[in-house]
Nucleic acid binder design. Structure first.
Lengths: 225, 225
DNA sequence: ATTTCTGGATGCGAATTCTGATTGTGGAGG
DNA sequence: CCTCCACAATCAGAATTCGCATCCAGAAAT
């Protein structure tokens, strides 16, 4: 985990840096707003600790710029001030947490952990197979980056296959997982939907294993002979 | 957005509930740990406010159980105690934020907003999608700069969609997140409100994915990769 | 008391799914 | 090497489901 500290007071900054490093973080320390903003814009951090009382550029401004640039790492704001209106302003400006000086280092560490944990919680789970990409979180499918419109059943079928990538899935298994309750077993809907998916995503996405079922393989992972 | 409050003191609990409701949240209130834990386990919340000093079951225990059950909504912990060691314990138990009693309601609201914002992966309190802009701080919505008057429910629905921009959101999910506990789940209100929002903001703001739900897309957002 | 808002009902129109028939294909056995 | 057969793919029309607009009554706000 990589952390950026923007803190103008050298003693505190250094102390924080070494404490965090002892806790297993990689830390960059910047002592003024401009430099700090630049680092946050160009490097990849898992979180930032930002002092509001900076010389030259104010901390809130730096935060605002990051957010405008779509820099979405969580930011923990430090401030000497303790009025709730400042806290509200900071939180609404895009800060994720707030800590008033002076503080216990343990509390800082705990809050930082909480921030990072929370931020990693909404990583989108993506399933890929060749050029096909399915985001289970947003329910979206793309083919080579281009969004593809799938109907409800098409999506369910593809989703099941992608969750079992590389495995041979029988027609029965598909019917059981796509339809609730019992469903007319001798119907060829599965074939129909496989056809339709192939039309939208390319014929080679789903492989037919004659007599057994279908399988979805990732050409990137299975080196072809 | 739907919030769970677990607070044993009835006066404070009721007061919080009505304040939050005035701010456009759907709120369920529980006055003891067991019931609170049950609600948090079975219903869908966008955040919870949890008092640590509960009778019978301790707040930290409730929190621990939720986390063990993989209930990942953000939790804001309230406590009368003010020692940092308690804070650290709370945060490490899986709390996402911490507020010591007594507190300013404004700060609570601001922290709650920040929690929900971050939980949905948004950095800024200004949510935009094409010409539509929603300011979670003021509760205002503009279309191409022009202010638009939305009713309470319209705002709730739009707000939820904008917090989950790009995601396909089912009707069930919408009902669960903009209404509280007791509400008739099979009614067509969602459709009605979607229609009304489209009338005010333009038909193309909300996309229908037949059989799956609705999704709000940002045309400005370049499809990544 | 008046106006606005909410939530449920209804019927229409359209997109989607299903059915059944037909055409296509691989491979085992002659 | 060819044939045949079982299985798979495709197609088009039918049936169904789903979503939308509209309306109305009761609730809530002003």
């Amino acid at each position: 985990m990589r952390i950026l500290i923007v803190e103008d007071e050298p003693t505190l900054g250094q102390q924080l840096k070494s404490t965090l490093e002892q806790n297993g973080y990689a830390v960059d320390l910047s002592t003024d707003g401009e430099d700090g903003h630049f680092l946050g814009s160009t490097e990849e951090y898992d979180a930032a600790i930002l002092d509001l009382g900076l010389p030259e550029i104010d901390g809130l401004t730096v935060l605002g710029m990051w957010r405008k640039e779509k820099r979405n790492f969580p930011v923990l704001v430090l401030t000497a001030r303790d009025s709730w209106s400042d806290k509200v302003a900071g939180l609404d400006a895009g800060a994720d947490d707030y800590l008033a000086k002076p503080f216990q280092t343990e509390e800082l560490i705990a809050r930082l952990r909480a921030l990072i944990r929370r931020a990693s919680g909404n990583a989108s789970s993506e399933l890929t197979a060749g050029p096909v990409r399915l985001d289970t979180r947003s329910g979206r499918v793309t083919l080579a980056g281009e969004p593809v419109k799938l109907t409800a059943q098409e999506y369910k079928l593809l989703s099941y296959l992608m969750h079992h990538k590389g495995k041979v899935v029988s027609r029965t298994e598909l019917i059981e997982h796509i339809y609730d309750q019992d469903f007319d077993r001798d119907s060829n809907t599965i074939e129909v939907f496989v056809t339709r998916i192939r039309k939208k995503l390319g014929a080679d996405v789903i492989t037919t294993i004659r007599g057994l079922g279908y399988s979805l393989d990732d050409p990137d992972e299975a080196p072809r002979e």
